[in-house]
């Protein structure tokens, strides 16, 4: 055991097969104590399998996970009291109230001193004390799930897609709770497919696709190391712009505001593109040239993996 290690989580060559299919394919990474770590990936990338092996729900096919200095497959019942888990699609007993649910989980951990009121205040559920679980909205259920994950005052908190399926307001409410935990210095392991969530909360982001980690680092590092291209945004365009850009061999996309976004691999392409639009008699009212954001980096990295079938680990750290 390496209890005094600076790492809360160490994952070594982790692999998980389901009936011949590889859900997690020989991944390795570490999470420092007090760090917020986000595992970011599209649906079916292997996020949940990875987190469920680390938080003791599943067993790996091969590889090793060291949690707080202990091998998870051999020390499940020693590790469990020291971690808190919000599994994907958290659910609880329908006819049990918010307060009773927290009391129940607190009793499972034999915690007599858990401050249930403080927990309910933390997740902003104090006015729902007597509401039964089945009568809570999706966002409130997730917040209760987070509170349940905290009843044993864990050293590491695992949150598997904590905001999936929530409306923007409920998502922000959950983020506020997570930011509060971050301030308290908890080690948080988060899986998500929302870029802004990872960008807002995480110190370190690992991008996973097809069971492999394709890039890892802080959000800034990921952008820096993978932004080997530019993004040009043409605002308030007329109909011809899209066609002109496409004819040049670029891949224009409309965003939600109706503006056109184009990925350019070379700086010279900016002038070439603008000249072509002008020569074609098309017009636009605004222009923005910038480096890609995390979402664009994510799309690039996961698309590459999906196209190539495999990709090497790009360690940014």
């Amino acid at each position: 055991m390496t209890q005094n290690s600076e790492y809360a989580i160490e994952v070594h060559n982790l692999t998980k097969h389901y009936k011949g299919l590889s859900a997690v394919d020989n991944i390795s990474f570490t999470v420092k104590k007090g760090e917020v770590f986000a595992l970011l990936g599209p649906n079916g990338a292997g996020k949940t399998t990875t987190v469920e092996i680390i938080d003791t729900i599943r067993k790996p096919t091969s590889g090793k996970v060291i949690l707080l200095g202990m091998d998870v497959t051999r020390n499940k019942y020693t590790i469990i009291p020291r971690i808190g888990v919000l599994p994907q699609g958290f659910s609880s007993f329908d006819r049990i109230t918010v307060k009773e649910t927290l009391q129940f989980y607190s009793r499972l951990f034999c915690r007599r001193k858990t401050d249930i009121n403080a927990l309910m205040a933390l997740v902003n559920l104090k006015d729902k004390v007597k509401v039964k679980y089945k009568n809570l909205s999706g966002g409130l259920k997730q917040r209760l799930g987070i509170a349940v994950a905290l009843v044993n005052d864990p050293e590491i908190v695992f949150l598997d897609e904590p905001t999936t399926g929530l409306d923007p307001r409920a998502r922000r409410a959950v983020w506020d709770v997570l930011l509060g935990l971050k301030k308290k210095g908890k080690t948080i392991f988060l899986t998500t497919h929302y870029m802004e969530e990872a960008e807002l909360l995480a110190d370190t982001v690992a991008i996973i696709a097809k069971g492999k980690i394709t890039a890892m680092g802080s959000p800034g590092e990921l952008i820096e190391n993978n932004a080997d291209y530019l993004v040009i945004l043409l605002k308030s365009v007329d109909e011809n712009v899209f066609e002109i850009v496409q004819k040049m061999g670029f891949l224009p996309v409309y965003d939600s505001h109706g503006d056109i976004r184009v990925r350019l691999d070379h700086t010279d392409d900016v002038r070439r593109l603008l000249n072509a639009v002008e020569a074609g008699g098309a017009s636009f009212n605004g222009l923005d040239v910038r480096k890609p954001n995390l979402e664009e980096v994510f799309l690039k990295l996961t698309e590459e993996t999906l196209l190539e079938g495999s990709a090497g680990i790009k360690e940014a750290k």
Partner: peptide, 15 residues
């Protein structure tokens, strides 16, 4: 409880 995932949550407690 298994279908709803409650058992999965319980498996992360000392039970």
């Amino acid at each position: 409880l298994r279908q709803k995932g409650v058992l999965r949550k319980l498996s992360t407690t000392p039970i």
